[in-house]
Simulated scan of single mutants.
Amino acid sequence: MIKISSVQLWVHDQNAAAAFYTDKLGMELRSDVTVPEMGDFRWLSVGPVGQPDTEIVLMAIPGLPVMDEETGAQVRDLMSKGFAGTVFLTTNDVQAEFEAMQARGVEFVEKPAQRPYGIDCSLRDPSGNHLRLTQLIEPK
């Protein structure tokens, strides 16, 4: 069986991203390792409390030789529009999570609304990455 262990999001500022995902969304810091031998490459990841096998890697947009300036600019542009990736989060009570996150300063793009699959809302992280928070309805 294959399992997903980590996914990666590009971020403008790793410190700001880590603070958002931990302080605002309530995730926990999983790893924060800087590798000097790789040009001070930083592996920074967070994950949902109670899901130790799943993490989101908050990856800085690299420069040369990994990514040329034109490609980096395109990635930053897509991020600013919310189109560089989406993280889907689920909860048993989207309204309660929405209110708790709002109280912690999270700004939502869409408020909770009923959909055919459940109740969901939309928010973006400080880098512009799109997140959806959903309370799924059990199929009948």
Rank of each mutant, 00 (worst) to 15 (best):
M1A: 11
M1V: 09
I2L: 11
K3G: 07
I4R: 08
S5E: 13
Q8L: 15
H12D: 15
D13L: 05
Q14L: 01
N15E: 15
A16K: 08
A16R: 10
A17T: 12
A17L: 05
F20D: 01
Y21P: 10
D23I: 09
D23S: 15
D23A: 15
D23G: 03
D23H: 12
K24Y: 08
L25Q: 04
G26Q: 06
M27K: 04
M27N: 10
E28K: 05
E28Q: 12
E28D: 13
S31Q: 13
D32S: 11
P36A: 14
P36F: 12
R42P: 05
W43A: 11
S45V: 02
V49N: 10
P52C: 06
T54P: 04
T54Q: 09
I56V: 10
L58Q: 00
A60P: 06
I61G: 07
P62W: 11
G63D: 12
P65E: 12
V66F: 02
L78K: 14
S80F: 13
G82V: 04
G85S: 11
V87T: 11
L89Q: 09
T90E: 09
N92K: 12
D93P: 02
D93W: 03
V94H: 00
Q95T: 08
A96R: 11
F98E: 00
M101V: 06
E107M: 13
K111A: 12
A113R: 07
Y117P: 01
G118E: 02
I119L: 08
D120M: 04
S122T: 14
S122F: 10
L123G: 02
R124E: 01
D125A: 11
S127D: 07
S127H: 09
S127E: 06
S127W: 02
G128P: 09
G128A: 02
L131N: 00
L131C: 00
R132V: 05
T134H: 02
I137T: 14
P139D: 02
